Simulated scan of single mutants.
Amino acid sequence: MEKTATLNLRVNPIVKERAESVLSRLGVPMSTAIDMYLNQISLTGGIPFAVTLPKAPDEINADLMTDEQLHAKLKKGYDDIEAGRVQNAANAFAKFRENHGV
């Protein structure tokens, strides 16, 4: 099939870099990957994967906690602060990104 249409897209540069890295290892150009995605949309009649919010584990999902459980978790957090068991937020997020490839 001849390719004559052009798409101009704005995307998050970090997401683009990560996708390009994966596609490069697969030997698939970005334009081919986008074409594959668009073909799948037309073949399946929708987005070809589930679009859902990530599910929080039950032990940290406040929507599933009783008031007592929630208060106990909050109290533990306050106790940790008072005992000095804290981290710098910037360092904690940097470590999270490093551990999770984000």
Rank of each mutant, 00 (worst) to 15 (best):
N8Y: 12
P57K: 14
M1Y: 07
A92V: 07
T4Q: 12
A94R: 11
M30E: 03
K16G: 00
N39Y: 11
M65W: 15
S31I: 05
D80T: 03
P54H: 07
T52S: 15
A56P: 01
P48I: 00
V86R: 10
K95V: 06
K16D: 07
F49E: 05
I34N: 00
G84T: 00
R85F: 08
V22N: 09
L7N: 02
K76V: 02
Q87R: 14
T32K: 14
E82I: 10
A50D: 13
F96N: 03
Q69I: 00
K55M: 11
F49K: 04
A19D: 00
M1S: 09
G84H: 08
I47Y: 15
G84K: 03
L38N: 10
T66P: 14
T52G: 11
G77I: 03
G46D: 10
D79E: 12
T32I: 12
A90V: 05
L9T: 08
M30I: 10
F96L: 14
S42T: 02
T66S: 15
K76L: 13
S31G: 04
Q69R: 04
S42A: 15
E20K: 13
A56F: 13
R18N: 07
N8W: 06
N8S: 10
D63W: 09
L7G: 02
A90E: 12
M1I: 06
V28H: 03
I60Q: 03
I41T: 11
N8R: 13
